[in-house]
């Protein structure tokens, strides 16, 4: 790798320190540093250790057991479940635009100031649910067991509570269930709809009041 060594202007007949630094930052030096750090990593976290143990168990797509679906949450709120705290962990502007009734706003990076007390049930939500799931996993890993995330986030809330849609081909049991959901929806100011003739797998767009956009952490 000689050709890749960094050009140095002449005249720096350096002390041993400068020379050592030069050696270390030469390609060969860097390669050795990298190899030694990697070998040490192998020793520090050997093949037999827990898979990805350093990255405390974050469920890949959000464990369902930690999720509460929109309808269950709606029932909890309507029935004033004792100790229930609903936290909106999105940006303030999004919270102002629309939030689940009774929710409090806590930005995601200030959750440490709003940790659950014993006996409380805390439900976190975001626009799509994924970020809330990660936050809940983090809290659970620290021992806060009564924390849940809202499945499918506000998008699911908009679909299932604000604009629940009864499919045209619903069975009798589904219609009976829908009556309760429709009551729940109206309690929250939602508008139950019946879907005459639309195909069963059509995506119902959320209403303008609940237009949601996922928090962007990626690129």
């Amino acid at each position: 790798m000689r050709g890749d060594r960094r050009c140095r202007t002449a005249g720096r007949a350096g002390s041993a320190g400068v020379r050592a630094a030069q050696q270390l930052t030469s390609s060969r030096g860097l390669a050795w540093v990298a190899f030694l750090l990697a070998a040490a990593a192998l020793l520090a976290d050997p093949p037999g250790a827990a898979p990805d143990g350093l990255r405390a168990a974050v469920p890949a797509a959000g464990s369902p057991a930690l999720a509460v679906d929109a309808i269950a949450l709606a029932r909890w709120i309507r029935d004033a479940k004792p100790g229930l705290r609903v936290l909106d962990i999105r940006a303030a502007a999004a919270f102002e635009a629309y939030h689940v009734p009774t929710a409090r706003h806590v930005p995601r990076n200030r959750l440490d100031a709003a940790l659950p007390e014993p006996g409380e049930t805390v439900v976190l939500y975001t626009d799509d649910g994924a970020t809330a799931a990660a936050a809940v996993a983090g809290l659970r890993a620290r021992g806060y067991d009564q924390t849940f995330w809202l499945e499918d986030g506000l998008a699911g809330w908009a679909d299932r509570i604000l604009e629940p849609t009864l499919r045209a081909d619903a069975t009798g049991a589904e219609r009976a269930e829908f009556r309760e959901i429709a009551d729940l929806a109206r309690w929250f100011g939602g508008v139950p709809r019946t879907d005459a003739g639309a195909p069963a797998n059509a995506e119902a767009p959320a209403s303008a009041s609940a237009r949601v956009k996922a928090i962007r952490r990626g690129c």
């Binding site: 502007a93 303008a208 996922a214 962007r216």
Partner: peptide, 16 residues
């Protein structure tokens, strides 16, 4: 933008 998630995701708060 409102009806297309591919755009909506990026235009969210950024529109303002």
């Amino acid at each position: 933008v409102a009806s297309n998630p591919a755009f909506a995701r990026y235009a969210g708060e950024g529109v303002a």
